[in-house]
Design a protein around this nucleic acid. Structure first.
Lengths: 364, 364
DNA sequence: CTGTTAGCGCTTTCAA
DNA sequence: TTGAAAGCGCTAACAG
């Protein structure tokens, strides 16, 4: 069954659509007729130009709208006005809690600024990203927020012949100078390494997914090497790549990791080895592996630090660098809004600071 | 900066909108002119009526579209056709991984069936649910999928004077007979209790959030009591309510839980106590508490079973009853699609079976 | 095969 | 203060 009718039960001519029996929704014309006036006045009423309407007419309109349970059609409005208050949000991977939090921030901001987000999930498929981008253009979204895997300038182009305002989240796109919102990767990584170094870990392995087109991964890895180099001590730093979408590769990488850890332990009796995960998905995979390999008390054997602060972090007792994800999403919408509103300043970038959350894992 | 222009750089009159410099997007008229034909032919081309077009004209149209980087305006199409391929998805709580998985299934199905989901996040605010529902109506979505906290029939009504096709996920709404998709709660709970009973746990506490308007919570709790009653043995079953949005209440409830567990242990030396969480958020809260109270090896002291299978379940080693969440979301869209397409059969319901995933927690 | 003509529901001059 | 009329970009009869 459909949702029951709320307004008066009019018995209009059958609908043209497939669902044959649904009573047609009231239009501005119906309201005008019902109120005994022209549609212009209704439009004015809808748009808050109340000062221009006589109290009488205004009351009649109010009543008519009420009686017909009328709701203006956004699409028609948009068509005429040229703006439909739709924003596109293109997410690379909803399975990543990061995306979900971004989504929440975006939602919130949209709500506050009067936009409606159109969410697209590319599910890590580079091809789907392009298709969705085109689809969004087709819906004439006023702007797009993009957190994508493989978008390149060339893929973004079709979005708007006229140029749809865009803001990038977490990742920049080569050759595209759009607004950018994300984490201050360098500072965040430094926070992590310095914490580990300070707590006496002298052998740190940075684990990251394949760089591909993802600038943040690259930046984090670079920051890691840099901060290790800056260290005066004899601490060792190494990077391992974990391709989560290739199980065989994962197995190999984890084996290599194990070997490294064992070796480190052998090299020096008191060697303290730590793992630094570049993001939550990597951290989860590592944690699962460590638990399988070292037992429930794995935290006491190997320290684990991660960028991102998933809901299970506390449970696993891992130290994290938390991103202000909601804020990032919120800010992205604000940027977009300002750009849509006109005054298009040069491309801006907002880098938020991460927050170190120390947990059992690095307190051993 | 905006995304760079892709097509030819035409120098049209300034745009009416605020963003003054953006070149206007090509319309069907532009294409017609460019191809030296009428808009009807363009329309026909767009709608795949290719057999009706002469190869020549067809080629010219193709070229014109290419040259102008033309994309038909969905909004205008929708306005004319009466259908815009938009579907509304109203989610009560995106922080719940369940919602996210539903979202993924919905996304996938929409993609396959040619719909575009409009996602709304009510953030557990009953008032926002109503507002979003109205907003969705305003965008003339062709149907809505609802997983809401407090929607009642009366709230759904304003959605459509004409009655927007709706399908409910996980929760029914009093007095509204719409399609319904969700877990077979009774069977799922039985799966859990029987597993626990079989493994010798004789004191089971079912922990659930306040029922409020959420039918699934009520159903699960009822099923729990029923399945405990059906048991021949002397096993004890009890229900505790955990209001996650009230920290003080949570503390009190957890204390009561602790007392219960301690007491059970005292009553009989070999007493085996188990907790059965009605969903993932509850399970997480319980796990955190148990870890804090009993230490890292809490799993060996208290068994924990939960409905839902969050990503951290493996890490925590808790036994779960996994819902085929993606499928549920997918099916919801299918239901909606069929209803939209016409033939409106009686309200249907799809109850999916849960799958028991046994982990360390109940293998002690 | 192709083009002309009306609108879809709304906003917006422009007159009254 | 009000309304008539002209579109926004597109589709769908209805002629040629």
């Amino acid at each position: 069954m459909s949702i029951a009718s709320g307004g008066a039960d009019r018995d209009d001519h059958a609908q043209t659509g497939a669902a044959a029996t649904a009573p047609r929704r009231a239009t501005i014309n119906d309201v005008a007729r019902e109120a005994g006036t022209g549609k212009t006045s209704i439009s004015r009423y809808l748009n808050g130009e109340l000062g221009v309407l006589s109290p009488d007419l205004r009351a009649r309109i109010e009543a008519a709208i009420e009686r017909l349970d009328y709701r203006p059609n956004q699409m028609a409005r948009g068509l005429k006005r040229g703006r439909n208050r739709l924003l596109g949000l293109l997410l690379a991977d909803l399975a990543n809690p990061y995306s979900v939090e971004i989504l929440q921030g975006v939602e919130e901001a949209c709500h506050a600024l009067g936009y409606m987000p159109l969410i697209c999930h590319a599910a890590n498929e580079i091809d789907m990203e392009r298709r969705y981008l085109q689809l969004l253009a087709t819906y004439r979204v006023e702007g797009v927020i993009v957190n994508a895997l493989g978008v390149r300038e060339s893929m973004l182009k079709p979005v708007g012949s006229g140029g749809i305002p865009a803001v990038l989240i977490d990742r920049t796109v080569d050759g595209l100078d759009a607004d950018m919102v994300g984490l201050d990767n360098a500072a965040a990584v430094r926070l992590g390494t310095e914490h580990l170094l300070a707590r006496g870990y002298d052998d740190i392995v940075f684990v990251v997914q394949p760089f591909e087109q993802v600038s943040s991964r690259r930046e984090r890895e670079a920051a890691f090497r840099e901060s290790m180099q800056a260290t005066k001590g004899a601490a060792r730093g190494l990077t391992h790549v974990l391709d989560l979408h290739d199980e065989a590769a994962v197995q190999a990488a984890l084996a290599a990791l194990d070997a490294h850890v064992t070796q480190a332990r052998a090299r020096a009796r008191g060697a303290r080895c730590a793992l630094f995960a570049a993001n939550a998905p990597v951290a989860l995979r590592l944690a699962l592996h460590l638990k399988a390999a070292l037992g429930a008390q794995w935290q006491q054997r190997v320290a684990l630090v991660a960028i991102d602060d998933p809901e299970w972090a506390e449970l696993a007792g891992i130290t994290t660098i938390r991103q202000p994800t909601r804020e990032i999403g919120y800010r992205a919408v604000e940027f977009l809004h300002e750009r849509i509103e006109g005054a298009a300043p040069k491309a801006r970038a907002a880098a938020f600071e991460g927050e170190l959350v120390v947990r059992a894992s690095t307190l051993a």
